[in-house]
């Protein structure tokens, strides 16, 4: 394991200044991705600034019924926070399905958003990989890519974004709040995640020394009826083949509001806007769900081993929305 320096910061400004002081300085939060990848020699920081003592771990209600999740709040704590579990069940469910209990205890929300891809060629530190070593090629496209993306891909990179929680947050229009050398800013989460295009090494717009301080989830009544469906080979402790974050409000059998995002199929947490547009104001029927799903996946660019994801994603969308619609009817409120 490559040597690195270590410092532990008590306040945000010092943490930022310390990272900025070295071009190879990086923040260290839960470490569940970072320490792993440093040991694999994929990441090569010269300095890790431990930010776990920073007071950024709260989960607070926002006046609009939303919630502010501290960047250093742990996955396990966020999943169980009453404001999240009651008002945004899709976030809780995504977090609980997103990692093992041990990892959830360690991993921060900010780190969860910034976690690196699980592509084996990226992680082995030696194969051609444009994300790790720009210009070296993509071994996955011609190699083993069963788990890789079918949406948002480029000829440079097809790695799937691995986060579950981010899929839920993307569905709910969360906002990523940061603080860095140029001050504070708020980035809509859909813009936070970048498509690989020709620069797969750039995954988000954070500058060197810019820290995620919080994630704001705006209030949304629809989110009370939301769920996260994760499809995987193993019953637990595995990244998604396909996942669906869905929130839906059905009135008089019509879709009054819908939030839909996909995981496991795209190079970023994938807001399914095409499907949303297809459904909004229309009938909440299985047929409509299927048609919306078909349209969402129409631009998919599958490869031989992950072609199944195109259909699996559609099936999962229909399953998730059908369950929400059925729940509405059973509730009998509308």
């Amino acid at each position: 394991m490559r040597p690195f320096a270590y410092a532990r910061a008590d306040d945000v400004d010092t943490a930022i200044a310390t990272v900025l002081a070295r071009p190879d300085g990086e923040f260290l939060a839960g470490g569940t991705t970072e320490i792993d990848l440093v040991r694999q020699d994929v990441l090569r920081p010269g300095l890790l600034v431990d930010i776990n003592d920073l007071p950024l771990d709260r989960v607070d209600d926002l006046p609009d019924g939303g919630v502010r999740i501290g960047g250093l709040a742990r996955m396990s704590d966020v999943a169980e926070a009453p404001g999240v579990a009651e008002r945004f069940p899709v976030i809780s469910e995504a977090l609980l399905q997103g990692a093992s209990p041990q990892l959830r205890t360690m991993a921060s929300m900010a780190g969860n958003l910034c976690q690196r891809v699980r592509c084996g060629y990226f992680r082995d530190a030696v194969s051609p990989c444009n994300k790790r070593d720009p210009g070296s090629g993509c071994a996955a496209i011609t190699g083993f890519h069963r788990g890789h993306a079918v949406l948002g891909t480029s000829d440079k990179c097809i790695a799937t974004h691995p986060s579950d929680a981010a899929v839920a947050l993307v569905a709910l229009d969360a906002v990523v709040r940061t603080r860095g050398p140029h001050g504070e800013r708020a980035v809509p989460i859909d813009e936070f995640f970048l498509l690989p295009g020709d620069t797969p090494e750039r995954e988000h717009p954070l500058e060197h020394g810019e820290l995620i301080t919080a994630i704001d989830v705006p209030g949304a009544a629809t989110a009370r009826r939301s769920s996260y469906l994760k499809v995987r080979d193993r019953a637990s402790y595995e990244f998604a083949l396909v996942s669906v974050a869905a929130a839906m409000d059905v009135r008089y059998r019509t879709v009054a509001d819908i939030r839909l995002a996909l995981g496991g199929v795209a190079t970023k947490p994938w807001r399914a806007r095409t499907a949303e547009r297809s459904l909004l104001g229309g009938p909440a029927t299985r047929e409509a769900f299927a048609e919306a799903a078909r349209r969402e996946l129409a631009p998919a660019t599958p490869l031989p081993q992950n072609e199944f994801k195109v259909e699996l994603a559609q099936r999962a969308i229909v399953r998730a929305l059908t369950a929400l619609a059925d729940g509405d009817e059973e509730g009998g409120t509308r």
Binding site: R118, G120, R123, S127, G143, G147, D233, Y237, E238
Partner: peptide, 30 residues
């Protein structure tokens, strides 16, 4: 029957899923 398989990347001649995150063995829930 349901989980285990090591995938060979025939182009590189290397096993492509050489980790316990990618070579799936059962967990308790399985």
């Amino acid at each position: 029957a349901l989980l285990e398989g090591t995938h060979m990347d025939a182009g590189l001649g290397r096993w492509a899923n050489a980790s316990l995150g990618d070579y799936l063995v059962p967990v308790n829930a399985d």
